[in-house]
Simulated scan of single mutants.
Amino acid sequence: MINSKEKYAQMIKTQAKNLGFDFCGIAKAEFLEDEAPKLEAWLNQNYHGQMAYLANHFDKRLDPTKLVDGAKTVVSLIYNYFPESTLPESPSDLKIAKYAYGKDYHFVIKDKLNTLLQNLQEEIGEIGGRAFVDSAPVMERQWAQKAGLGWTGKNSLLLNKKMGSFFFLAELIIDLEVAPDLPMTIDYCGTCTKCVDACPTDAIVGSGVVDGSRCISYFTIELKEQIPYEVKGKFENWIFGCDICQDVCPWNRFSKPHQEAEFLPHPDLQQMKRKDWEEITAETFNRVFQKSAVKRTKLEGLIRNIDFVKK
Rank of each mutant, 00 (worst) to 15 (best):
Glu40Lys: 15
Asn252Gly: 02
Leu19Asn: 09
Thr86Lys: 09
Asn155Cys: 10
Asp247Gln: 08
Val74Ile: 02
Leu43Asn: 08
Asp22Met: 06
Thr201His: 06
Lys110Glu: 10
Lys146Ile: 01
Cys24Met: 10
Lys234Gly: 04
Val205Arg: 06
Tyr105His: 12
Met272Trp: 15
Glu260Tyr: 01
Leu113Met: 11
Phe167Ser: 09
Lys28Pro: 01
Ala131His: 02
Ser255Gln: 07
Arg274Met: 10
His48Lys: 08
His57Asp: 14
Ile216His: 03
Ile173Lys: 05
Ile239Ser: 00
Val231Tyr: 13
Asn80Phe: 02
Glu122Phe: 08
Phe31Trp: 02
Phe219Thr: 00
Leu223Cys: 05
Glu300Lys: 12
Lys273Tyr: 02
Gly148Lys: 09
Pro257Glu: 01
Thr297Gly: 03
Val309Ala: 07
Val210Tyr: 01
Asn80Gln: 12
Val231Trp: 06
Lys103Leu: 13
Met184Asn: 14
Asp22Ala: 14
Phe285Asn: 11
Leu39Arg: 15
Val288Glu: 07
Gln270Asp: 01
Ser213Pro: 03
Ala97Val: 05
Ala36Trp: 02
Met1Asp: 13
Thr193Leu: 14
Lys7Val: 09
Leu77Gly: 05
Leu299Arg: 12
Ala282Glu: 15
Lys66Pro: 00
Ala136Phe: 09
Asn155Pro: 09
Ala261Met: 06
Gly212Asp: 13
Ala27Ile: 06
Leu149Gln: 10
Lys256Gly: 00
Pro64Tyr: 06
Val309Asn: 05
Phe132Glu: 01
Lys256Met: 06
Tyr81Thr: 08
Ala52Ile: 07
Val210Trp: 03
Ser207Trp: 12
Ile221Ser: 05
Gln142Phe: 02
Thr152Gln: 14
Pro91Glu: 15
Glu225Ile: 05
Glu278Ser: 06
Thr86Asn: 03
Asp34Ala: 13
Leu54Pro: 09
Val309Ser: 07
Lys66Asn: 02
Ile244Asn: 06
Val196Gln: 14
Arg214Trp: 04
Pro64Gly: 08
Leu116Ser: 04
Thr284Gly: 03
Leu32Tyr: 07
Gly70Cys: 01
Gln226Ile: 03
Leu223Gln: 14
Val196Gly: 14
